[in-house]
Design a binder for these strands. Sequence first.
DNA 1: ATTCCTGGCTAACGGCATTAGCTTTTAGCT
DNA 2: AGCTAAAAGCTAATGCCGTTAGCCAGGAAT
Lengths: 189, 189
Amino acid sequence: MPRAGLDPAAVTLAAAALADEVGLHNVTMGALAERLGVRAPSLYKHIDSQADLNRRIALLVAEELGDELRTALQGRAGRDALAAAARTMRDYIIKHPGRYAATVRLGVTGPDDPLALAGARVLESLAAVLSGYNIDPADTVHALRLLRSLFHGFATIEAQGGFEMDTNVDESFNWLIDFVDRGLSLKSQ
Amino acid sequence: MPRAGLDPAAVTLAAAALADEVGLHNVTMGALAERLGVRAPSLYKHIDSQADLNRRIALLVAEELGDELRTALQGRAGRDALAAAARTMRDYIIKHPGRYAATVRLGVTGPDDPLALAGARVLESLAAVLSGYNIDPADTVHALRLLRSLFHGFATIEAQGGFEMDTNVDESFNWLIDFVDRGLSLKSQ
DNA sequence: ATTCCTGGCTAACGGCATTAGCTTTTAGCT
DNA sequence: AGCTAAAAGCTAATGCCGTTAGCCAGGAAT
């Protein structure tokens, strides 16, 4: 029998894809192994544990999100950049709810943790959005937390089907971008 | 031997307390039973399954949060009400991270679902905050979603220890309330 | 060709949620 | 007070899951 030719990256990618399909909590070692044409214990040749796998998925998400943000923000500034960043994050979370869920509830070990570094690069992109707004440097960290909380909150509630009412969610999203843009523009005067 | 005298409410309350102490994912049937002085299978005389238990915890949270919001919003309007609502939600989630986690990832079955009803009462409180702002009725649902996304996002990120930087989180929180207050005031003109 | 690491396998363990079926307590009725 | 029956506890057992131990083959390097 030929070998499966797996490595940690392939396992992580398959797990992320499976999570998007069936939900992160249904990504069992058995199901993942079956999808990879392998038995469950074999996975431990590539990953340490399920917690390690979650961590790797979270790292993948941070890298993917960072890449998409950097791409989307090229040549944009101000309201345009804000809208692009918001849309990019929202689309990503809606498209990849399973892998995004892996980013919740994990502790960062140290400042040189690759996960912390990848997360920092995402934050840098959000900071770049803010740089188009002329904000008091003392307030930048607050504005950053605003964007992060809002994007994360909105997308997770939407991904879990939390917006019950029939009013169009897209419309709310655009209204929200407007609201933040206006507020940040005010602050800069 | 005397009986333990349990009922669904007592089991739910104990589970919620345990979740706050050890995290929701560590609320195992065995651990919960031990805390109640009972064996694990006995719990099934009061609840249907672990999923049912999660649902009951979520319902408890919606009721508790709704009560606290209504209390906190008595006699307040405008910016004062906004700040009170934000603080109430944040304090609750920080104080009860385990039970709050139970509100994530659950499907509402129908419009007469008690969970949906309790959730609607929470939303009513947030709507009451907005009523002090003179907002265009067509925009109310958007503003509601803004508050919900922001409060939920901020509190969950904070509860999971996500704000790494050393800048004071309280300060960011107050800045954020200011930001929303200003924005909503603008809209009302 | 031999050696040896790598990546697969089977078998097994402990923990978990859950079900089946038994026993005992206790509330309600006469 | 005593009887009955439902409610609430128990033990035993099942099946899934994560994980570990230990074995075996395949392919690369000498």
